[in-house]
């Protein structure tokens, strides 16, 4: 167990290192330095700026300097507005984290609920409706869904106020973000629930007269949830990338929209900082999920 955890932690650190290396060298491969503005600066200023940001040193040395700062939580300053990237992330991450966690809870709760209903009422109308709707939602790109929700409920019907500093309604963004994972979890739960309902231990429990509710919750559902737990990893990745889109559509000032504006502005330090940060969040989340997954399912061995 400890050996497995250590192995996974080392893997995670290696991954984050590789990501930062790719990001760093990729950024340096882009032609033009950060001080190539439309209005040319005089060479002395550029030299001073390069020295200030260690840009006069070899690329490899720059990388290690960057890593040193990165470990201390310093990701440099935005090329557009000069604000520190760490401060920007510190401001915007809580909003994104709240949005993401809410979407995850909604997706998992309703996904399992609807999936179980579909499995228990197999081939009846609730099953057909749930599966039809969830198949449909796996085919809608998140930005289309977000835009449609915004158009219908905020602009046309006026039920939900558009996001601003004074009114922060999470409901539409959460719906837009959670629909796809919810649809996926629904389908996953249905098939694994059907699978476990057909197992011998369920039949045995039924035969010895265990109450139907107890059979479903204690025997069938608990085992059916294991595949759902494995999906939590990919779902975290989906929610993080999905939030890039959803935050931009709803004009929420979270980390995702900062990333997207960073790309549109070609603000390289911003892209770098947010990529590494989001990647680190994703890798850590995957690490925790993998360990939890092995803990809850005793059949899986640690090798």
């Amino acid at each position: 167990m400890t050996k497995y955890v250590i192995k996974r932690v080392i893997m995670a650190i290696v991954t984050i290192f590789i990501i930062s290396a790719i990001t760093f060298f990729a950024m340096n491969a882009i032609p033009g330095g950060p001080f190539n503005r439309e209005k040319a600066l005089d060479p002395a200023t550029i030299e001073a700026l390069n020295a200030r940001y260690n840009l006069d040193k070899p690329v490899l040395q720059q990388f290690f300097i960057y890593l040193g700062h990165f470990i201390k939580g310093d990701l440099g300053v935005s090329l557009k507005n000069g604000r520190s990237i760490s401060a920007i992330i510190g401001d915007s991450f809580p909003i994104s984290a709240k949005l993401g966690l809410m979407a995850m809870v909604v997706a998992i709760f309703f996904g399992i609920l609807l999936g179980s209903i579909a499995a228990l009422m197999r081939n009846k109308w609730p099953d057909r409706v749930v599966i039809f709707v969830s198949t449909l939602f796996t085919a809608v790109p998140s930005f289309v869904l977000a835009t449609l929700l915004l158009l219908i409920f905020s602009i046309q019907l006026g039920w939900v106020r558009v996001w601003s500093a004074s009114s922060q309604s999470y409901i539409l963004p959460v719906i837009a973000l959670s629909m796809y994972p919810m649809a996926y979890i629904t389908r996953l739960t249905k098939s694994s629930m059907l699978d476990s309902l057909g197992q011998d231990y369920v039949r045995t429990a039924r035969a010895k007269g265990v109450a139907s509710r107890k059979v479903i919750f204690k025997h069938a559902l608990r085992n059916a949830l294991i595949p759902v737990v494995t999906y939590v990893g990919p779902m975290t990745a989906y929610i993080i990338t999905g939030s890039l889109v959803v935050e931009t559509v709803f004009t929420i000032g979270g980390l995702g929209s900062k990333f997207v504006t960073g790309i549109t502005n070609r603000d390289y330090t911003m892209i770098m900082g947010t990529t590494i940060f989001l990647a680190a969040v994703m890798v850590t989340a995957n690490l925790i999920i993998d360990i939890v997954y092995k803990l809850i399912d005793p059949r899986i061995t640690f090798d």
Partner: peptide
């Protein structure tokens, strides 16, 4: 494969697109 698999794909795609575009 394990290492590439654990890279966050969408972020890497965006990053590589930004880089590959001028190259």
């Amino acid at each position: 494969v394990d290492i590439i698999y654990s890279l966050p794909d969408m972020l890497m795609i965006i990053l590589l697109s930004v880089v590959l575009d001028p190259l």
